[in-house]
């Protein structure tokens, strides 16, 4: 276990873990606070359908994943905004429809393509230098925009109508947030995969939620947890020859339950007057 840090592929995997874990955990704070969890799930499936279509047509997977992911995130966002239908119903529909599309595209392929499944379950140990660059680029965009507009996103998460009324262009920021969620998911497809990215979005943020009563501290804790479990997951999976995605997710789940057990928020609430 001494000199594995010199191994190129492991260095790349760890870099990818830091980036994916950090970005997912940061954007995850808003996903958890704003109740967008299922938009995340629908978007992940849609992005995977995009990848499947790319392989079917012989195109580049990333642009297809981005187009499908963004399209689904925006449509679900519009549905939520209109409030015409119960959100869980509309998301349930988009969630299954996009998965059905993915399965259809895979079925239409004449040959079995193992690479496609890499995007479903992730393959962080086989990340190439080019993929790492793309991940780093998208991560920089997402983190940069989050940092730039932190006060707007926090306000939006707390109370969107109030933000709007106080002079924040809340609607635009809501769609920017959906866009960043979609980009984050696409970034994570190759590393943790379409199924498990959902866990990386939710668990670090939900864990941080248990531990603090400050928005800014929740963000800091969430990113720290996301990065730590991702790195630890990669190291564990390398050491014990385990699949990486599940190692990261199960580690995160363990941390979450420890946080729930220790949460200061479980103290009894004072009576409201």
């Amino acid at each position: 276990m001494v000199d594995f840090l010199t191994l190129g592929f492991l260095q790349r995997s760890l870099m990818a873990a830091v980036l994916t874990g950090g970005v997912c955990a940061a954007i995850g704070v808003f996903v958890v606070l704003r109740g967008l969890a299922f938009i995340g799930a629908g978007t992940a499936h849609a992005a995977f359908a995009g990848v499947a279509l790319a392989y079917l047509l012989g195109g580049p997977p990333m642009p297809f994943a981005i187009a499908f992911g963004l399209g689904t995130a925006w449509i679900t966002g519009l549905l939520e905004e209109r409030g015409r239908m119960k959100l869980d119903v509309s998301i349930g529909i988009s969630y299954t429809a996009t998965m059905a599309l993915a399965i259809l595209f895979i079925g239409l392929m004449k040959t079995y393509n193992a690479e496609v499944y890499g995007y479903l379950f992730g393959s962080i140990l086989s990340v190439t230098a080019d993929e790492l660059k793309l991940t780093a680029g998208l991560a920089a965009v997402v983190i940069g925009l989050l940092a730039l507009f932190a006060k707007e996103f926090f306000f939006l998460a707390f109370d969107q109508e109030m933000a709007e009324a106080s002079g924040v262009p809340a609607r635009r920021f809501f769609f920017l947030l959906l866009t960043l969620v979609a980009l984050t998911i696409v970034v994570s497809l190759k590393t943790v995969g379409a199924i498990l990215v959902f866990a990386l979005l939710l668990i670090p943020a939900a864990t941080a939620y248990q531990l603090t009563s400050s928005l800014h501290r929740m963000m800091a804790y969430s990113v720290a947890i996301g990065v730590l479990v991702s790195v630890a997951g990669v190291l564990l999976s390398f050491q014990f020859d385990l699949p990486t995605g599940p190692a990261i997710v199960l580690l995160a789940t363990g941390v979450f339950f420890v946080a729930v057990a220790l949460s200061p928020k479980r103290a009894p609430k004072p009576a409201l007057s």
């Binding site: 002079g167 009563s213 400050s214 928005l215 800014h216 929740m218 609430k269």
Partner: peptide, 18 residues
Amino acid sequence: PNFPITVHEAVLMGRSGA
């Protein structure tokens, strides 16, 4: 009651537009 926000953070939000 569980939303993680301090009194300071909530009041500072009022400054966003300004």
